[in-house]
């Protein structure tokens, strides 16, 4: 029973973690919450759906179809996020802290309504490129092929992100900007380029999460991003917003909390969000900067 809950928690947490990374990467550099991130992941799933509709013959089942969905969802979401940054946030960056946040809320509402009005106000079936079957694990637990794909994709993307952030030129520039944006400029770093790259990467991870989330429900909808977006934002805060490892940790913790609440508490399935968020509030009362967050005073 517990093994099964761990499997379920991992699969759910992996999706939250991917989304949470998008919030935390942006916050790390700009100290800004990208409230449009949940719509970016929603549009990532619609872009994947659009590709599948455009080339239905190629979208039976199989790894190629799966890769196609990911590529479409990630590229579209990454490009959209960078586009939003360029036109809705960058012009306001020097003005005030609050203006980009309001702009982000505006973008979020516009994108949701655009899909609602122009695409569909209903759930739309999402392609299912992998044959659903249960794979037995030790201890009587089993993992569905979908959960396995979710976990594998999330782990690969996280490893890739780790490599980019730690080892590459752009990744080092991202970390330098997160430490001190002005000093990075003095080193010859064009902050606009680094910020655009950060939004692209964060958006692409969100796009992947949008595809995985839609696949697990078999459908997508104009407000698909809202709930996982809010939860992933919570996860990012729980782990310590601005901290990459914290976002992953927070995502998995939130996934486990929900699954365990649903599995072990009477009527838990209905109470899972209440329980998960109560734990979040308790953690923040004890550690206001999150589990792995630094004290705010350190970043003067």
């Amino acid at each position: 029973m517990l093994t099964q809950q761990i499997v379920n928690g991992l699969a759910l947490g992996a999706i939250y973690a991917l989304i949470a990374l998008g919030y935390t990467l942006v916050y790390g550099i700009l100290a800004m919450i990208n409230f449009a991130h949940s719509e970016v992941l929603m549009l990532g799933s619609f872009a994947a759906l659009g590709l599948a509709a455009f080339a239905p013959a190629a979208f039976g089942t199989g790894p190629l179809a799966l890769a196609g969905l990911f590529a479409a969802g990630m590229l579209a979401a990454g490009a959209l996020n960078a586009f939003i940054e360029r036109f809705a946030y960058r012009p306001l960056r020097a003005v005030s802290r609050l203006a980009p946040l309001i702009s982000a809320i505006g973008v979020s509402i516009i994108l949701q309504n655009a899909v609602f009005l122009w695409v569909s106000d209903q759930s739309v079936a999402f392609p299912q490129p992998i044959a659903i079957r249960q794979i037995p694990l030790f201890g009587g637990a089993q993992i569905s092929s979908l959960q396995a794909v979710t976990l594998a994709a999330a782990l690969i993307l996280m490893a890739l992100l780790h490599f980019v952030v730690e080892k590459t030129r752009i990744g080092k520039a991202m970390r330098a900007c997160a430490d001190d944006l002005e000093a990075a400029g003095l080193m010859g770093v064009d902050a606009d380029v680094v910020i655009a790259a950060t939004f692209f990467i964060g958006g692409a991870l969100g796009g992947a999460a949008g595809v995985l989330y839609s696949m697990s429900y078999g459908s997508t909808k104009y407000n698909l991003g809202f709930l996982p977006g809010a939860k992933a934002f919570t996860a990012a805060v729980l782990g310590g917003i601005g901290n990459v490892r914290g976002a992953v940790l927070g995502g998995f913790i939130l996934g486990f909390l929900e699954v365990l609440a649903a599995g072990y508490i009477p009527n838990g399935a209905q109470w899972r969000d209440v329980i998960a968020f109560s734990v979040l509030i308790l953690v923040l009362l004890v550690r206001p900067s999150g589990l792995l967050g630094e004290k705010l005073a350190e970043k003067v």
């Binding site: 970390r175 430490d179 001190d180 002005e182 000093a183 990075a184 003095l186 770093v189 064009d190």
Partner: peptide
Amino acid sequence: PPHEVMRMGLSLVPEGRRIFPRLTVME
């Protein structure tokens, strides 16, 4: 902008040093 000034051969060591605290010395 600062990154273009810097590329012309003019470097500033700012007040308060402003090193990157979470990057290694090498980085």
